Simulated scan of single mutants.
Amino acid sequence: MKKSTLALAIALASAPALALEQGEHRFNAFGTLGVTYLGGEEDGRSFGIEGQTTDSWRGDQLSKFGAQLQYGLTDTLGVTVQLTAKADQDTWKGNLEWLYLSYQATDELMFRAGRLRTPIYMYSETLDVGYTYPWLRLPDEVYGQVQLTNYEGFDMVYNRGLPFGNLTFQVAVGQAKDRELFSADDQYDIDYDDVFAANIALSTDYGMVRVGYAESSLKDGFDLRPFDGNKGKFTSLGYQYDQGTVVVNAEATKRVIEGTAFPTLDAFYVMSGYHLGDFLPHLTYSQLDEEGTGRQSSWIAGLNYQLTPTVVLKSEYKRVDTSGGYAGQFVETRSEVITRAGRNALGLPTANYDGDIVSFGVEFVY
Score class of each variant (00 low, 15 high):
327 A>K: 10
300 I>F: 01
34 G>M: 09
205 D>H: 12
91 T>E: 11
165 G>W: 07
3 K>W: 05
21 E>K: 15
142 V>N: 04
176 A>K: 08
41 E>C: 07
291 E>Q: 13
212 G>I: 00
280 L>T: 10
139 P>A: 08
334 R>A: 13
111 F>S: 10
344 N>I: 13
140 D>V: 14
263 P>I: 07
80 T>E: 07
159 N>M: 11
22 Q>M: 11
110 M>E: 05
87 A>T: 06
110 M>S: 08
261 A>V: 08
224 L>P: 00
333 T>G: 13
329 Q>S: 11
113 A>Q: 06
64 K>P: 01
290 E>A: 15
193 D>A: 15
302 G>D: 05
266 D>A: 15
329 Q>N: 06
366 Y>F: 11
156 M>N: 01
192 Y>K: 05
114 G>S: 06
345 A>D: 12
256 V>N: 10
126 T>V: 03
8 L>K: 04
116 L>E: 03
179 R>H: 15
359 S>K: 04
2 K>H: 05
27 F>L: 03
181 L>M: 13
78 G>N: 11
95 N>L: 06
247 V>P: 03
159 N>F: 13
169 F>G: 10
105 A>S: 12
322 T>E: 07
267 A>R: 00
135 W>F: 08
88 D>F: 13
71 Y>S: 04
4 S>F: 06
35 V>H: 12
268 F>L: 10
270 V>S: 04
343 R>N: 06
309 P>V: 05
150 N>D: 15
167 L>E: 05
250 A>S: 14
204 T>S: 15
121 Y>P: 04
27 F>P: 04
103 Y>W: 14
111 F>H: 11
125 E>H: 06
275 H>L: 11
129 V>L: 01
185 D>M: 09
105 A>L: 14
81 V>C: 01
293 T>S: 09
97 E>P: 00
126 T>F: 00
104 Q>M: 12
218 L>H: 11
12 L>H: 14
305 Y>M: 14
100 Y>W: 03
